[in-house]
């Protein structure tokens, strides 16, 4: 490993998670406000996260297993916001149905 790659890889990892958070947040706010622009923004952040994931595949600091793991966790980031959202909506829907 080259020393510079330590900082590069860790910053990439940080921004990777950050982009996931931005994707989730914009997704939720966009759903709330029914705003196409915000939902589009959320997809841009997810795209950024995917690109960061690709860049991470190329850094030599991380072993192969971790790279595969990152790809898998990218899928996790992709599904958590919509899944959480629809779970919340169906819970609320049930509640409304009752009253």
């Amino acid at each position: 490993m080259k020393p510079e790659e330590l900082l590069f890889a860790s910053l990439l990892l940080g921004v990777f998670a950050l982009a996931g958070g931005a994707y989730g947040s914009f997704f939720a706010i966009g759903k709330l406000g029914r705003s196409r622009l915000l939902l589009f923004t959320s997809r841009v952040f997810f795209g950024l996260q995917a690109v960061l994931c690709l860049v991470l595949l190329r850094v030599s600091t991380l072993h192969l297993g971790w790279k595969l793991f990152l790809v898998a966790s990218l899928l996790g980031y992709a599904v958590v916001p919509p899944l959480a959202w629809s779970a919340l909506e169906s819970l609320h829907g049930k509640e409304k149905g009752k009253s």
């Binding site: 998670a17 989730g24 939720a28 706010i29 709330l32 966790s73 996790g76 980031y77 958590v80």
Partner: peptide, 21 residues
């Protein structure tokens, strides 16, 4: 531990949902 951020992201979604609802 690298999976730990995911539930925390779920909580963010929940907070935003409640803010709206």
């Amino acid at each position: 531990s690298a999976l730990e951020p995911l539930p925390l992201l779920g909580m963010v979604i929940h907070a935003i949902y409640d803010a709206g609802a």
